[in-house]
């Protein structure tokens, strides 16, 4: 596999190793977080070949392809990250790497027109702090649109 563009070998002697552990413990990429360890909260979200997946229930030995973590998003995410800041899309920040990685995958696909569908597509990333309005507004802005989620 490649992690953020760097070739990385899988855990040869540790088939039980999760991708999350390989990223955090072996590669020092601690952006992806363990919120639950059961694939329920989204805090561990990373991209594999551009698809948002849960690294806490992904076995590292099975990973083949491009793994992208929050640290590896580069300039493509700058607009989204600034929008997160301007719209109060984070507070404690623990879910934020997972949110942003998931957002990037969604932006690449194209955001749904419908706001409820957009929220559904973000419902795999729990946030206990913000109530999601800021995240939705940041997504629309990063997509070059006026935030519709906010009623004026």
């Amino acid at each position: 596999m490649n992690v953020n563009g760097t070739p990385t070998s899988g855990p040869v002697e540790q088939p039980e190793k999760r991708l999350l552990d390989l990223l955090r413990d072996d590669l020092g990429l601690t952006g992806a977080k363990e919120g639950c360890g059961r694939g329920e909260c989204g805090a561990c979200t990373v991209l594999i070949d551009g698809v948002a997946v849960l690294s806490c229930i992904t076995l590292a030995a099975r990973v083949d392809g491009e793994v992208t973590t929050i640290e590896g998003l580069g300039e493509d995410a700058d607009k989204l990250r600034a929008a997160f800041a301007d719209h109060g899309a984070f507070q404690c920040g623990f879910c934020t790497p997972g949110q942003i990685v998931r957002c990037i995958a969604l932006l690449a696909q194209g955001l749904p027109e419908d706001d409820h569908e957009l929220r559904r597509q973000m419902s795999g990333n729990i946030c206990r702090c913000t109530g999601y309005v800021g995240i939705m507004a940041a997504l629309r802005e990063a997509d070059g649109r006026e935030p519709q989620d906010v009623q004026q």
Partner: peptide, 30 residues
């Protein structure tokens, strides 16, 4: 208004200002 960062013009007081969270780069960057 969510989303509109008020432009800083003149001696605006920081109180009431839409200041980005100080940790925004670290937190949005993992």
């Amino acid at each position: 208004r969510v989303g509109a960062v008020q432009a800083k013009s003149g001696p605006a007081s920081p109180i009431g200002m839409r200041v980005r969270n100080l940790d925004w780069e670290a937190k949005t960057g993992g």
